[in-house]
Design a protein around this nucleic acid. Structure first.
Lengths: 239, 239
DNA sequence: TCTTATTTTTAGCCATGGCTAATTCAGTGC
DNA sequence: GCACTGAATTAGCCATGGCTAAAAATAAGA
């Protein structure tokens, strides 16, 4: 694969994150990346020449297979780096994210393999996001948020949004990190806060915050020592 | 300090390495960096505007104090990274150098401090080169090479040239790494090979290779168990 | 000193990746 | 079907950092 610039890699990563089923709009990319729409159009033409995106004027973009693979490679770098920076080097949430954001474009395959090995081939980063495999496969993520969870439901935190590092510090303090078992006790109406039980204690969480916490239904197992909630299984998909 | 591009940092680093007492020639920089002389002239003008170099047409360049500080910061990054990549992550000589060459431009102060701490604040990298301190001071390096050493002299390897990674692999195999104690036994005339004693064995080393190995005279101390050669002391200079 | 060789700079070109301002396109309401 | 609105594109500009070819300055030799 030819050397791609940091800018190209950043656009591909952004498009990957924005594209669900359908095509991504120019303005949407511009807003997220904080550049002008004109710059986006410009880059989309360049990416088209490189056959990394499928783009038609006024019709939005989507990644080609090649573009998807590049995006997943960068995301793999990012998530492995975040895991390494946090687990091995003791970075904080905010420092970790910023550092990974820069380094993801500059590490070699060799470096990637070393940290993967040193970490014991992790499948998820500290946010709970799945780490793409070297051959570009990625596990499906949870789509249900804590905000949508009904009172009485037992859930396990799957991942948390990685946009806001202050939020992450708060969530860490609240014990709402991946693997945490939570039960929704009460939900105030009109987008009011939730009362949740976790770690034997009750806690009140704002609706906006809860919407950044992605969960999976807990699976109840009966063991010798009673009923235990455990994380649900996960499949690896090609996308 | 304003953000400097990778290119600017690379030029400053190269000029730092080439400048002894006097000014560095355009062509010299061009040759080392493998770019055209025109590109060098172009960049020198830019560096002058940034007040990082002191440059006059046809008269060569030298770094200003500000330029020197930037260069030392990059060299600090490089040498700390090399040490980390080798000691902690198990990189080989060649991989280590290439990786550090890229990453040195992209790590944060935070990252620099973490690896410095994890390594126990090392003063020298694996080649034996001194690591500049955070406030831009650097220890003097040895200038005598093994090739210039006379038969009978006892020396300690101080550092080895970091240009050629195949050479480094060879030197590692030969036991000619920093801290190794060596005695020159014989020197063939007409730039012929040297016979040296190290680690109780004798070995023949080509003159060209010996010129890449920098040494300091060993200081003999008499101890209970006999005469021992030890590395000489080193002062930290402002340079 | 004068000519020549070498070094260095200038002139002018290119790709990348930003920007603003002006224009064009697509979709909605009337 | 037409006018309007908002999204997207085009046109044209800029800085960075490369390049080649031609010109100019310096250094060296006769």
């Amino acid at each position: 694969m030819r050397m791609l610039s940091q800018a190209v890699e950043d656009y591909l990563k952004t498009i990957y994150k924005l594209q669900g089923e359908d095509r991504v709009a120019t303005n949407h990319i511009a807003a997220v990346m904080e550049v002008s729409s004109a710059s986006v159009t410009n880059m989309l033409k360049r990416l088209t020449r490189l056959e990394l995106v499928d783009y038609a004027s006024y019709q939005g973009v989507r990644l080609t297979e090649a573009g998807t693979q590049v995006a997943l490679e960068i995301i793999r770098h990012h998530r492995l780096l975040e895991t390494y920076l946090k687990e091995v080097m003791g970075f904080s949430w905010s420092e970790m994210h910023e550092e990974a954001e820069r380094l993801e474009h500059h590490i070699s395959e060799e470096f990637e393999e070393r940290i993967d090995e040193m970490l014991g081939y992790p499948t998820h980063d500290p946010h709970g996001h799945p780490i793409p495999t070297k051959d570009g496969k990625i596990a499906a993520s949870a789509t249900q948020t804590l905000a949508e969870t009904e009172p009485g439901e037992h859930v396990v935190v799957h991942h948390v949004s990685d946009g806001d590092s202050d939020l992450l510090d708060y969530l860490e303090g609240a014990g709402l990190l991946p693997q945490s078992k939570v039960q929704v006790v009460e939900k105030e109406p009109f987008n009011g806060p939730l009362k949740v039980a976790l770690g034997g204690k009750e806690r009140v969480i704002g609706r906006e915050v809860a919407a950044q916490v992605f969960v999976r239904p807990a699976i109840h197992r009966t063991t010798a020592s009673g009923t235990v909630a455990s994380s649900s299984a996960e499949r690896t998909e090609t996308k």
